[in-house]
């Protein structure tokens, strides 16, 4: 069964004249690593907010269509009920940490649902270890770097042991190396814990290689959905204004010139380099 399924989802913010998402029907299977991309203002963030019921419960406004997440109809259940199933990580790490120590922040959700102390300690420590911040658990949020702050934000939704983690441009404020570390953490959670990941990103250079399901949005609607290798190779994707990874782009440029590197479109520099090494290796 799909872990997230939407049918003809259309939503308009209160006071807005145009809907922010239009007729969105998507299906996400358990354990997938989904990448959502598209130009600014295409409705990616709004779609994320429907997954745990922030839209429409927190934002009000009018939501039409159907949506079930982890088997629950989010229209009929509050965000605090969804929090156990779906964790949201936002763009700005600064505004999602409100406690005075890191472990206290990680425990925030568990405290809210009333988990007993011993169990909470165990879950918090687990989440801290998974994200590699156990050693800094007693520090305060301003004593750590932006990358570490964002890992705290991930740990704090992870502690609730959700089935789905949704991350809305989690690395846009970070330097490339810290960003890469964040993506590694998310990828590990996806592979080892089987957590379904939904990642919203502009920078496909850094992220395409992790995904096995790509959704391209534009003007509130889903324009393309499916295998990232196929979608990134298509002309339509480029026309929408999606930043195709350089490795993928180079592969296509070479293909156009008649250089055959194999059928699989590469998503990362490693894949392209391997294909080139294979194709150009000295033969005797």
């Amino acid at each position: 069964m799909a872990i997230i399924e939407t049918k003809n989802l259309t939503y308009t913010y209160p006071g807005a004249t145009k809907p922010s998402i239009v007729d969105v029907s998507i299906k996400v299977e358990k354990g997938e690593f989904v990448l959502i991309t598209g130009p600014s203002g295409c409705g990616k963030t709004t779609l994320c907010r429907t997954f745990n019921g922030l839209v429409p419960h927190f934002y009000q406004g009018e939501l039409k269509g159907e949506i079930t997440v982890a088997g629950i109809d989010t229209l009929k259940h509050h965000t605090y009920e969804m929090a156990k199933h779906v964790g949201l990580v936002f763009q700005n790490p600064e505004n999602q940490l409100f406690a005075l120590s890191i472990e206290k922040d990680v425990a925030f959700g568990l405290e809210n649902v009333g988990v007993p102390r011993e169990e909470m300690r165990r879950k918090v420590d687990w989440a801290l270890n998974q994200t590699g911040i156990y050693d800094i658990r007693e520090r305060s949020p301003h004593e750590i770097s932006g990358g570490q702050q964002q890992r705290v934000a991930i740990a704090s939704v992870l502690a609730m042991e959700p089935e789905v983690i949704v991350l809305d441009e989690p690395t846009s404020f970070l330097d490339p190396l810290s960003a890469e570390k964040i993506f590694e953490v998310i990828y590990k959670l996806n592979k080892e814990q089987g957590i379904t990941v939904i990642l919203v990103e502009h920078r496909l250079d850094l992220t395409a290689k992790y995904s096995n399901h790509l959704i391209v949005m534009d003007h509130g609607a889903v324009r393309l959905e499916g295998d990232p290798r196929k979608i990134l190779a298509s002309e339509e994707t480029r026309l929408i204004g999606v930043g195709i990874p350089k490795a993928t782009l180079l592969y296509q440029m070479l293909k156009k010139e008649g250089l055959n590197l194999g059928d699989q479109t590469p998503l990362s520099s490693e894949e392209l380099a391997d294909q080139l090494l294979e194709a150009l290796k000295p033969r005797d």
Binding site: D205, P245, K246, A247, L249, L250, M253, L254, E257, L259, S268, S269, E270, L272, A273, D274, L276, L277, L280, K281
Partner: peptide
């Protein structure tokens, strides 16, 4: 990303200092 590819291609005798995609394409072709 282009520099990453070319670092890996060093054994084939490619220059390492390539960051431009068109330069990369020309060198490979």
């Amino acid at each position: 990303q282009i520099a990453q590819v070319f670092t890996k291609l060093a054994p084939l005798g490619f220059p390492k200092d390539v960051i431009d995609i068109y330069e990369a394409k020309a060198a490979i072709l």
